[in-house]
Simulated assay, not measured.
Amino acid sequence: MTFVLRSLAISDPGLVRPNNEDVAFAGSRLIAVADGMGGAPAGEVASEIAISSLAPVERSAPDAEPVTALRDAIGAANAQIRAVTDADQATEGMGTTVTAILLAGRRLAVAHIGDSRGYLLRAGRLSQITRDDTFVQSLVDQGGLTPEEARRHPQRSLVTRVVQGGHLEPATVALIAQPDDRLLLCSDGLSDVVDDDTIAATLAGFPDREECARQLVKLAHQAGAPDNVTLVVADVTAE
């Protein structure tokens, strides 16, 4: 039995931001979200570099080590961002989050840096498969904040690690795919304003990927959508 991803991406500017610094990729083996930062147009440049570096991984050999493939691609993006900032002082400080999942056979490799999230809905149960690289998450880990308090904290958007041209080591997770798994990657424009219970109910309640994705964007809009809202919904399907 072989698996493929049936995936769909949506990127929406939200209701406040004048530009969209998010970029997504939705393939049959690779899905990814990058949320740029550093001010227009630098944030957009960084996220485009990240996704452009990751996109060729879609065509990598299915029997290749998927974690290595993602690490190498993110490393290449990191080096290119450094080269751009070295050449143009106006882009100094630009960076991007990256969250990517690669399907290789029955293996799902996850690589992550920043606060764009990865979720897995399996048998009706939602789990977050990435850890936010944020100041408030470190407080939650230390017991200083509850997850609910972290959602309302004024510094909840303070990201502690991004792809920015310096030394980095993406966090990685290896999973075994199961038929009918549903994956969600999203920028914090969704996860900051729509809680996990609502995300879970939407992923479970809208079997059609496009309807599901549009409903998630609608929920972000109803919550004010102060940031760009970008997401990929992908279903693991047996061929």
Rank of each mutant, 00 (worst) to 15 (best):
T146W: 03
H112T: 08
I101A: 01
P179F: 06
Q155E: 15
H153C: 11
D141H: 06
L184C: 05
L121Y: 02
C186D: 03
Q178C: 09
V110D: 07
S187M: 11
L103W: 04
D196E: 15
Q164M: 14
G95T: 07
P147H: 09
Q137W: 13
I113H: 03
D180R: 01
P147D: 07
I113L: 15
G114S: 08
L102H: 04
L175P: 00
I101D: 01
L120S: 00
A111K: 01
Q137H: 09
E148L: 13
V159S: 04
I101F: 04
L108E: 03
G144K: 05
D192F: 07
L168G: 03
V98H: 01
A123N: 10
T160H: 10
T99M: 10
L139A: 09
S191A: 13
G165E: 09
R161Q: 15
Q178M: 14
P170L: 11
D115Y: 08
S191F: 09
V98L: 14
L175D: 02
G165A: 13
S138Y: 03
A200M: 05
M94T: 08
D141F: 12
G95M: 12
G105C: 11
A150C: 12
G95Y: 12
S187Q: 05
R151L: 15
G105V: 04
D197T: 10
L175R: 06
S138G: 08
G124V: 13
L139P: 00
G114D: 08
G189R: 00
S138A: 15
C186T: 01
L145Q: 07
E148K: 05
